[in-house]
Structures are given as C-alpha cells and as structure tokens.
Design a protein around this nucleic acid. Structure first.
Lengths: 236, 236
DNA sequence: AAGTGGTCTAGACCACGCG
DNA sequence: GCGTGGTCTAGACCACTTT
C-alpha cells in the first residue's frame, strides 16, 4: 500500500539533490521529459512536482531552456536586509554573542506557545549581524528543545542557522508571522549595537513555522535601520 | 487567431463574477465538472484556472465539497495592522487629509521610476488611519496619471483605495517591495499623528505592482506602532 | 450512492531558445 | 531543426463529504 503521492516523491527527490548540492545552483535540472522516464510517469505529474518546487523558491523555470536551480532563501520576508542576499557591495558577518544553551522561555515572545513547547526546555542563542564592520542587527532566537536538539554554533553552515537546518536537517521554513514596532534602543541594545540609547530602532518579533510541525523558531530582532533599511518583496 | 489562453478566460470569468458579487462570498463555485461543460474543456484546464484563483486568494478548495468564495484582501503584507482585517475589537476609520490631485513626483520615493512614469504627471493623496479614534498611520500615495485617471476620494469603496481598484477597475495587487526604517517622527508627522516629534515611528516605503503592468502604486507610511504594532504573516 | 475535488495516464500541439 | 517548457485533451481511479 503506497501512500506517498508520486509528485511528492519526485519533489522530495529533487529537493534533496538541490539541498545536497547534487543539482548545483545555477545549473539546470534534467528536463521534464527525462524526469518522466526516470520516474516512469507523465509530464502532468512531473510538472506538478516542479511547480511545487517553484513555489518553494528552489527553482526557476525558463521557457525553452529548462528549470534552473536557485540560491535558496531568496525571501524570508523581513529577515532580508538590503544587501544581505546579493551581498556584493556589503561585507556581512554574523557573530554569535550567546552560544546556544538551555534557558527558560522568555516572556518577551509575543506569540502563544503550544502546550508541547511550554512543557519543553527552551534553546536560546543570540547573534549580532555586522555590515561592513558595523553592528546592525541584534537577534535573539528560541526554540523548543524537544523538537530539535541543541545545535552548537560551530555546526552553523556559513554562520547561518537556517542554512544549517535546510542542509543538515532537511527542515524548511514554511511561513512566518511577524510583529513590528519602532522603539528607542534602550541601554542594553544600544550597547551591543554601539548606538545611542535614544536612537530609534526597529523591533521585530517573529515566529517561523517549519516543515517539522512541532518546531517553531522564535525571533526577537533589534534592527538599526538608519543606514541599512530592511527591504523585502513578495508576489502573488 | 486567438491569443488568450483558455484557463485565463475561465480565470477571468470567475474572478469577475466574484468581484461583482455574482458568486457571493461564502458560497460555492460551480463544480469543476460544470465549468468543464460550460467552457467545453477538460478538468486539467479548469483546475489550472482555479489553482490561479486559489493562489490569488479568491477561493478556497474543500475536498469533497467544492470551491468556496473567500473574502478578498486577506493579506496585503505589511499594510495589515493588528486588527485591521478582523477589526472586531477595533474601530478603524480612514480620513482623506489630502484629496487626490496632480503634483510633481516626490523625491522621497526610494524606488526608481520607469521612463513612462517619469514622463507622466503624478497623482497624490494622503490619508490618516484611526483606530478607536486615535490616529495611527499617516499614508502618502502616488501613482502615474497616465496609467490610471484621478479617482476622487468620494469614489472610494468603504474608504479603501485598493477595494475601489479591485471592484470598480478590476485591478489587482500582484506584489510589492518594501523598505522599512525606524525613525523619530519629526514635527510634521508628529502633528498629524498627535504625538511627540521625538517618538519613534516606523517608516515604510512601498511599491505595489498591479495587474495593469504600467501601473505601480507608491506608498509612504508613518506608523505609530507603540500601541498598535504592525502584524503580518506569509506562507510558502 | 452520488457528487465533489485530488491524482494520474498517454498522448497532442504550440511557443521559446539555441545552434 | 531540435529540445525545452506551456497549454490542452479525454479519459481513469481514488479520497472525501453529503444525502
């Protein structure tokens, strides 16, 4: 008795090969015709699989040429700072200022935790993102330890927690909710971002939903937007 | 020589009937089978049309029951303030503080205009959104007059410019780019929002892409987020 | 049992990119 | 001209909801 749909098999197969670099970024996937032969199916089914990957941002279709593998993470909504992605002009560095460790859940999180999360210990870490040597974003992160083990920052792929999840744990971000406020920095944040406590900063609280249903990632970001505003775009 | 694709015909037909209320909210569309007969086509094509409407947020599919018409405008990204949509607890009112009129393009717009836009006169209007009697958002809007005539605020459907575009002009928002900054209010903004010039506010610059390719809507928003933070969510 | 949407097959022809 | 993806046909069977 097979339960997994055929298009999900194909989708999963291609996704994994993209994530593990077997279909490298900027190369083209096998043609729809080839995938049909490989999986012994029809184009309708292969196209359904590729359409899903398109929506998830893994590939881009080019009429007459093929389906090109994209760099992953093209738009995690607000978490994209001007230049963070392309980053040609900018020199971006991420510094882990608090190593992942187990703490109590922080009441600053403005989302209601699930019962499972409340019962679980909480993993916390803090990072500061620098652009051209200037600290720009202070980022607190939490998640339930019962849903994902403690991952040391030495395991982070290119300093990125999300990239680590995607590449080493095959966990994808499925969506997010955010709450935005303009505030004055305050003493603690000002110190870490090297600004005046009276300077206005953008405070973002975010909950990321992942492909692992029991795992939510909570974020608490303080962005010094004066020089590097947050940019994002969305479609459809 | 026909050029329009069949699924676009069906998509357009259904969309128009939804927008004009001939398929009322919360009712079910004709079944895929019926639409096949009506347009003399196959389910593949009808489903493609409905899938597009699904992505655009017009309908919701229910396995075994049918495709239900949804209320439109479920998430225009950041333009959703906590409670603006559901708005049961909140009493939201929009006041037009500057009637639509023709002006020069304002250099505060941080996006580069197209050549057509530069050549066109510019339509400008300003609104203030109130929640429970408190002014919360000051909103400047611009668009190229060559792409859309001047629409007086008396034409606004329920005070909403976007609703007017959708219902009376059949123009849909296709996507947007945004830039966010935390700032201090400044004298002018502070006066209109009735706050202190030193208070932190969230400044959002946005460009909306519409289904009319030559028409972009530019916005410049000042949000007093202290009491009513901006909330949004996105998926996929 | 009847009706709906979800998945899938096995083809066809068209539009686009490239050599 | 060939290979690619885009659209479309004419069916089939399955899963879910309702009567």
């Amino acid at each position: 008795m097979k339960k997994t749909k055929k298009y999900e098999q194909i989708q999963g197969y291609v996704k994994k090969r993209i994530q593990t670099g077997k279909y490298p970024v900027d190369t083209y996937l096998p043609s729809e015709h080839d995938l049909c032969n490989q999986f012994d199916t029809t184009r309708t089914t292969v196209r359904k699989a590729l359409d899903e990957l398109l929506r998830e941002g893994f590939i881009q279709k080019e009429h007459g040429r093929g389906s090109k593998v994209l760099e992953r993470g093209k738009s995690l909504g607000l978490l994209t700072i001007k230049g963070f992605s392309g980053a040609i002009d900018y020199n971006v560095k991420t510094v882990v200022t608090e190593e992942p460790k187990i703490v109590e859940w922080d009441p600053v999180i403005p989302f209601s935790l699930t019962e499972e999360e409340k019962k679980s210990p909480c993993v916390y870490f803090q990072r500061v993102r620098h652009i051209n040597g200037t600290p720009v974003v202070l980022e607190n992160n939490w998640y339930a330890k019962n849903a994902l083990k403690v991952i040391g920052s030495n395991e982070f792929v290119e300093g990125s927690f999300f990239k680590t999840l995607s590449q080493d744990y095959l966990i994808e971000i499925m969506g997010a909710e955010q709450e935005l406020k303009a505030k004055t920095a305050g003493i603690d944040v000002a110190k870490k971002l090297n600004i005046d406590p009276e300077d206005p900063i953008l405070h973002i609280s975010v909950r990321f939903r992942t492909s692992r249903p029991e795992l939510n990632l909570y974020g608490d970001l303080y962005c010094h937007t004066a020089e590097y505003p947050i940019r994002n775009s969305y479609f459809l």
